[in-house]
């Protein structure tokens, strides 16, 4: 186990070895977050690069209280949100009409059917706006009010995007497990 406090102190002094160690220790978790927000692996790498530079830049502001990992995660999430804002004009936004209400009866999926990588693929098929709201609300546990403030959208937009994201995900999960069952049978 590494001594986080010592590493933080060294990073504050710009010790390159400590910075590398910090990166090696935490980058897998942070990259996991980036992958959820980014459209592809390359974008995730960009987010990680930007975010980690911010972390090293601001590490002297970290006052030693509270969770260091939580602080880094927040910076990464905030970087992802910033990137979302930056890329917004390039993103394809789906209109409401394109989302078909799905029949939610007879759901035939449960958690153990999927690996994290498969779920990641499914989340990444969501339209950007839905994806970021879903990530922030369901995984990070942000409140709709906070999401609305962060993304500069209406609180009701956040709520409706979230519920549509869930409907889409449900549909995709069903589809996915059907395919899997078929594959097993074949």
């Amino acid at each position: 186990m590494i001594d986080t406090e010592e590493i933080i102190e060294k990073c504050k002094r710009n010790d390159r070895e400590a910075q590398k160690l910090l990166f090696e220790t935490y980058s897998p978790v942070l990259f996991g977050i980036c992958l959820r927000y980014a459209r592809d692996k390359f974008e995730a790498e960009d987010t990680l690069q930007d975010g980690f530079l911010k972390i090293l830049n601001k590490i002297s502001d970290f006052n030693g209280t509270g969770s260091f990992e939580g602080w880094m995660k927040r910076i990464i999430i905030n970087t992802a949100i910033t990137n979302y804002h930056k890329n917004k004009k390039h993103n394809l936004n789906l209109d409401i009409e394109e989302i078909q209400e799905t029949n939610i009866e007879g759901t035939s999926y449960n958690g153990s059917d999927y690996t994290a990588e498969e779920l990641l693929k499914i989340v990444n098929t969501l339209p950007e706006g839905y994806k970021i709201v879903f990530n922030l609300y369901a995984i990070e546990g942000y409140k709709h009010k906070e999401i609305a403030e962060q993304l500069n959208i209406d609180i009701n937009t956040s709520k409706s995007q979230y519920s549509r994201a869930k409907k889409l995900l449900r549909k995709k999960l069903e589809l996915f497990s059907k395919i899997k069952i078929n594959e097993r049978q074949a």
Partner: peptide, 29 residues
């Protein structure tokens, strides 16, 4: 269900980034 499925799997989801990410950061630093 939906939230739990994703949350459970994503909570500790991690993936090692490629080496070039650190190289880039190192260069910037």
């Amino acid at each position: 269900n939906i939230e739990d499925i994703f949350k459970e799997k994503f909570e500790n989801f991690s993936q090692v980034p490629q080496k070039n990410v650190w190289n880039y950061i190192n260069r910037k630093l």
